[in-house]
Design a protein around this nucleic acid. Structure first.
Lengths: 159, 159
DNA sequence: TTCGATCACTTCGCACGCGATCTAATATAC
DNA sequence: GTATATTAGATCGCGTGCGAAGTGATCGAA
């Protein structure tokens, strides 16, 4: 039978920072954001705004909730973010005519044109980080699976 | 030779949300935080505060900059966070005697005791997500490598 | 048809994250 | 020994994230 001290040692181990999966996720996410920032700043975009623009280039015009589904962001984050994109002149926000509850987001000419300026962003990034494309693809697939599992998990799965 | 249209199509592809590595990182990180939140809330902790406590349980007493090195966070984030942990009664902040520029962070009795309450957090989390430990370990190793590459990358590597 | 759900979004409050800047203490140059 | 540079934290401003609560529009059951 394990002594109380041994039992504590096991628990201790599980709480070590270098044993956590959560921390490298948190850290890598922030490091990536820092890497994008200098490329996006000249365009007036923050990193979350860039993600939303990626979605809009695929889906616009679409509702706030549609953007939220894809970005996994709630409307309380998106509303102010979209207002900033509107002030920047990249998107328009308009209440739907059929259903006045929904706000349709559409791209302005400037918003569409921005896509050209962003085209080089992913390449530039890859060039700056010496991480092999194969590993990047494998990592992305692992993360996609983890995300699916996390969304299945119990708890607040709001969005 | 590729036509302008074909060239655009390639660029288009690189900007698809489901082709980005950055997005699953960003999304997974936030989903993980959401998963921890209900476990940490009863203890009065936010997720970043939990990360800092993990570091302190290993390293305390230590300086603010030491915490920052490990968490990859700057003092402008840590100072208010540590003040909140101080208000919660988990840590003490005191200027060093040898060098009055450094602020030493030490754990209170409550801060040490909190470790016992957190011992079950990693296990509970694993139990809630049906993600195999082998995959989790592989994912963590991939992320650790990515983090190393990101820290080597040019740009603002402040911390 | 009308009145209570439900829905889509907004607003509010609080805690990050981080670039930029400030302050006080220490190190270094001369 | 004084002047300058560097360092460790703190402060400020802004943009997220997100729980909770609010508002107005639509849906559904009685």
């Amino acid at each position: 039978m394990k002594s109380a001290t041994e039992h504590m040692a096991v628990k201790d181990d599980l709480l070590r920072l270098d044993r956590q999966l959560c921390f490298p996720l948190y850290a890598a996410s922030r490091l990536i954001t820092r890497l994008y920032q200098p490329m996006l700043e000249p365009l007036g975009l923050t990193y979350p705004q860039y993600i939303v623009m990626l979605i809009l280039w695929e889906d616009a015009p679409c509702s706030v909730s549609r953007v939220g589904e894809r970005a996994l962001l709630n409307s309380n984050t998106l509303t102010p973010l979209l207002k900033r994109l509107e002030h920047l002149g990249y998107v328009r926000r308009a209440r739907g005519t059929a259903d006045e509850r929904v706000v349709q987001i559409s791209l302005t000419a400037a918003g569409n044109a921005l896509k050209i300026d962003c085209a080089c962003v992913p390449e530039t990034l890859l060039a700056n980080v010496s991480y092999s494309p194969e590993k990047a693809i494998a990592l992305k697939e692992s993360l996609d699976e983890l995300i699916r599992k996390l969304q299945e998990a119990p708890g607040r799965n709001s969005t």
